[in-house]
Amino acid sequence: MKPIILHGHDRALTTIKFNLEGDLLFSSSKDKTPCVWFTHNGERLGTYIGHGGTVWCLDPSYDSKQLLTGSADNSAKIWDLERGVALHTFETQSAVRTSAWSFGAQRFFFSTDKARGQISELRIFDSSAVRQEGASARPSLVIAAPGESKFTSAVWGPLDNTIIAGCDNGAIYSLDSTTGRILGENLSAHTGLISDLQASSDLTMFISASKDQSSKLFDIDSLSVIKTYPTDRPVNSAAISLHKNRVVLGGGQEAMSVTTTASKAGKFEARFFDMILEEELGRVKGHFGPINTIAFHPDGHGFASGGEDGYVRLHQFDQSYFDFNIPH
């Protein structure tokens, strides 16, 4: 089926996420203004005006009441999701890179970049404290990135006990969300920056995307690699769908660095792999620049991708997607 193309951002997309029900899609880009869209028709429901720079990350709460965003304007914000007004603004000393609500939204975290004498930190807050004290609430825990590294992507682990965090040096850590202790580490997870981590819906596994041109599936407890999906270009984002045991990878090289005349414009595909067999199943073309962020619809019937070209493409899978199986 033809994808719905969401025009609304004038600069490169940074993060897209569906809410739990899948009726809404949230997008952030380098143009300061996150948007929310109806997924059934691609109509824009609203915008979140208030940030002063690139919005790197966003996360809607499980009940679709609040939206958490982090920006290069050195702040994170919590928004009233429906009304589009900022409820709290947390000032930081450097850009906010990744953020997420815990499963029941009792807690949330965001990470800060390493910059100008600032080390990269993961700041965890209690929602109840924030409700009482507002933005002046102190984080319940601050975890510094191990070594000289920088947190680049992080997700909550099972039961919100852990936070799985990936770094710019390719390492992945499992951090105790109440003590900050490092419970596990995989220092050789990747050889390049980890650009994205996404957990499976059952929280048994998570998938990584890395500049080292590969994507890997990990055991969420031991951080051991279960599967590897190699490509030949940097991977910016990866997502898991347990619906058909598939993973999708988005990425690509900047057009400028592609020297060949052979590769066509628009050849920035989302690549689908069989999660278990690690075999590539197919590609979906369309973007005119690398794919920066990719997500499966929660019901597994479609996916969305956000590109460097400023477009979000919302796809509904054809019947063939569901029919096709590698014989086994």
């Binding site: 030949d232 090289q253 660095s257 592609v258 020297t259 060949t260 052979a262 590769s263």
Partner: peptide, 9 residues
């Protein structure tokens, strides 16, 4: 299709 002409694929 070799690296002489292509970077990827």
């Amino acid at each position: 299709a070799t690296t002489q002409h292509l970077k990827e694929d």
